[in-house]
């Protein structure tokens, strides 16, 4: 008899709770926009946050809620933007130009020496907090790979010379490494632009640059004089090439006394 009471009580409780849950699931059902899931499936799913929202699902919700632009997914690029537009039933937007990360420092370990030995946490931010960084150059790449670690697409690796290498195929120009680099050495640039650029970020005077780095821009202005297009200006002892004026003639490359002017978006790239 006791066996039956036990069975009935527990079974009954199970039935009651099950029924209650079933009723609740029906009664309190929340209608979700099916487009959110469709769009989320289209997205790369790296949850990189380059769109400004926490994760792909959140971006999808905001696109459906018309709070985000369909072209907001930077890693997705043109293709995914088109697919999202199709789901949303709107005209296609967004640019087609492929972009990649570009690093503006050539100061590898052998050409840009350290001012002291650093044995702390292997992180650029931590190293920078200690006496302004161990590198003699105040502007150069510390080479501890904070950018490479931040990359959600595994597109940045640290080379043997202590400088990061960008994997052009994998890089989606999401811009996370740009934010990760405490010395602001990374920028997003058009992948296929044909012009020259100066991979240096040193705003030190020429004399200081010569002391701390073999491949730093001293701001000598030899390139400025050589450039037939007047595309180069020197600001804060650092030559900057205007990519809209540069016709890639190469005069500056020959003129540069330290041979540091390179083809844009090719240096540090694999």
């Amino acid at each position: 008899m006791e066996l039956f009471t036990a069975l009935i009580v527990i079974g009954g409780m199970g039935l009651v709770f099950g029924g209650l849950l079933a009723v609740a699931a029906k009664h309190f059902a929340v209608e979700e926009d099916a487009r959110v899931e469709t769009i989320c499936d289209l997205l790369p799913g790296a949850n990189c946050g380059a769109c400004g929202f926490p994760g792909c699902i959140s971006f999808a919700e905001n696109v459906v809620g018309l709070k985000a632009d369909a072209s907001g997914c930077i890693p997705g690029g043109k293709d995914i933007c088109d697919s999202i537009c199709k789901v949303m039933g709107i005209d296609s937007v967004g640019s087609e130009v492929k972009k990649v990360a570009e690093i503006s420092c050539l100061g590898s370990r052998d050409v840009a020496p350290d001012k002291f030995e650093y044995h702390g946490v292997r992180d650029c931010n931590a190293a920078l907090a200690f006496s302004g960084g161990f590198k003699a150059c105040k502007y150069g790449c510390l080479g501890l790979g904070t950018c490479a670690e931040s990359c959600p697409f595994d597109a940045l690796h640290m080379g043997d010379n202590g400088l990061p290498i960008v994997d052009r195929e994998r890089c989606t120009a999401c811009g996370i490494c740009v934010k990760a680099c405490p010395r602001d050495l990374i920028r997003i640039a058009d992948a296929d632009r044909t012009c020259k650029y100066v991979p240096c970020n040193s705003k030190d005077k020429g004399k200081v640059v010569r002391e701390v780095c073999e491949v730093g821009c001293t701001g000598c202005k030899a390139c400025v004089k050589a450039c037939p297009q007047d595309a180069i200006v020197v600001e804060d002892s650092l030559a900057v090439i205007d990519s809209s004026k540069c016709d890639n003639c190469g005069e500056c490359v020959d003129a540069c006394r330290r041979s540091i002017i390179k083809d844009a978006a090719k240096v540090h790239h694999a």
């Binding site: 209650l20 849950l21 609740a24 699931a25 309190f28 059902a29 929340v30």
Partner: peptide, 10 residues
């Protein structure tokens, strides 16, 4: 489960 369902709606 019940709390989750009710919260989601209300």
């Amino acid at each position: 489960q019940l709390v989750e369902i009710v919260l989601k709606k209300n």
